[in-house]
C-alpha cells in the first residue's frame, strides 16, 4: 500500500506546472524516504530531478518500493480539478495498475476521486556525479523569470557570464543585443530579494531559451532560485519546494561548433 497526503494540494499543482512543458511521461519512484522523479525531455537536452521527502507529507506510507509510470499531461489535468484549498491524497496498491488522486475540501463536504492508469516505461537513469561548481548564484526567482522572458525576445539563447562583480545575462540576434547585469546585493536584509554570487572561477555558458523558459515555470514554488555553473558542464537550476523537497533542472550548454 502506498499513500501520501498533502494538506496543500496547491504544492503538487505547482510541481506539475513546473514539469508539464518538459516531460510527457515520467516514472515516480516511491520509497520509504519519499517520492523521486528523474526524467529527461525527448531531446535529452534537459533533465528534471524532483525530490519530495516523506517527512514533508502530512501522511506518508509506503510498504514497498514502487515505480509508477505516469502521463504528466493526464496528471496535470487531474490536478487542475483540485480546489485551491483542497487536500490531496495519492493512493496505490502494492502491484498497482492505477493510482488514485483523492481531493478533499477543507470542510470535508466534497470528496473527489480520480483514477489514472499507470504506464509501462523504459527506465533511463542517468548517473549525475556530485560536482563542486565554479559559481553558485542565488537570486529572486521572479527576477530570473523576467530576465529569461525578456532576453528570449532577442535571441534563441542566453549567455550567462559570472564573475566576482556579479552575473551578466546576454542575448543577441538579428535585431541587436541585450544585456542584463545583476550585482550581488549589498545588504541581505530581505533574503527573498537578495542576489548572492559565490564564485571560485569565472564562468561563461550559453543555454537555449526554450528550456530556460520551461524551468521558470517552477518560479511559483520558491522565492529564490539557485544557479550552479561550471564551464563546459550542464547548468543546475534549483528551486526548493517548501520544507518538502526540491526540483532541479539540468541543462546541457550550447558550445561553439
Amino acid at each position: 500500500m502506498f499513500e501520501a497526503r498533502l494538506v496543500q494540494s496547491a504544492i503538487l499543482k505547482k510541481v506539475l506546472d513546473a514539469i508539464k512543458d518538459l516531460l510527457t511521461e515520467a516514472t515516480f519512484e516511491c520509497s520509504d524516504s519519499g517520492i523521486q522523479v528523474q526524467a529527461m525531455d525527448n531531446a535529452h537536452v534537459s533533465l528534471v530531478s524532483l525530490n519530495l521527502r516523506s517527512d514533508g507529507f502530512d501522511k506518508y506510507r509506503c510498504d514497498r518500493n514502487l515505480s509508477m509510470g505516469m502521463s504528466i499531461a493526464c496528471m496535470s489535468k487531474i490536478l487542475r480539478c483540485a480546489g485551491s484549498e483542497d487536500t490531496v491524497t495519492l493512493r496505490a496498491l502494492d502491484n498497482p495498475e492505477n493510482i488514485v488522486f483523492i481531493f478533499e475540501s477543507p470542510n470535508k463536504e466534497k470528496l473527489a476521486e480520480y483514477e489514472m492508469k499507470l504506464i509501462n516505461m523504459d527506465q533511463e537513469h542517468l548517473g549525475i556525479p556530485e560536482t563542486s561548481y565554479s559559481c553558485i548564484v542565488k537570486m529572486p526567482s521572479q527576477e530570473f523569470s523576467r530576465i529569461c522572458r525578456d532576453l528570449s525576445q532577442f535571441g534563441e539563447s542566453i549567455t550567462f557570464a559570472c564573475s566576482k562583480e556579479g552575473i551578466k545575462f546576454s542575448a543577441s540576434g538579428d535585431y541587436g543585443q541585450a544585456t542584463i547585469k545583476l550585482a550581488q546585493t549589498a545588504d541581505a536584509d530581505n533574503e527573498e530579494e537578495a542576489v548572492s554570487v559565490n564564485m571560485q572561477e569565472p564562468v561563461k555558458l550559453t543555454f537555449s531559451c526554450r528550456y530556460l523558459n520551461c524551468f521558470i515555470k517552477a518560479g511559483p514554488l520558491c522565492a529564490q532560485v539557485q544557479l550552479s555553473m561550471s564551464n563546459d558542464v550542464p547548468l543546475v537550476c534549483e528551486y526548493k519546494i517548501g520544507d518538502i523537497g526540491h526540483i532541479r533542472y539540468y541543462l546541457a550548454p550550447k558550445i561553439d561548433d
Binding site: 537536452v45 533511463e124 537513469h125 542517468l126 550542464p234
Partner: peptide
C-alpha cells in the same frame, strides 16, 4: 555558430 549538446555528452546512463 553554437551547437546544442545533450546530457549524454556529460552524464552516463546508470
Amino acid at each position: 555558430i553554437t551547437k546544442q549538446t545533450t546530457l549524454m555528452n556529460f552524464f552516463k546512463k546508470s
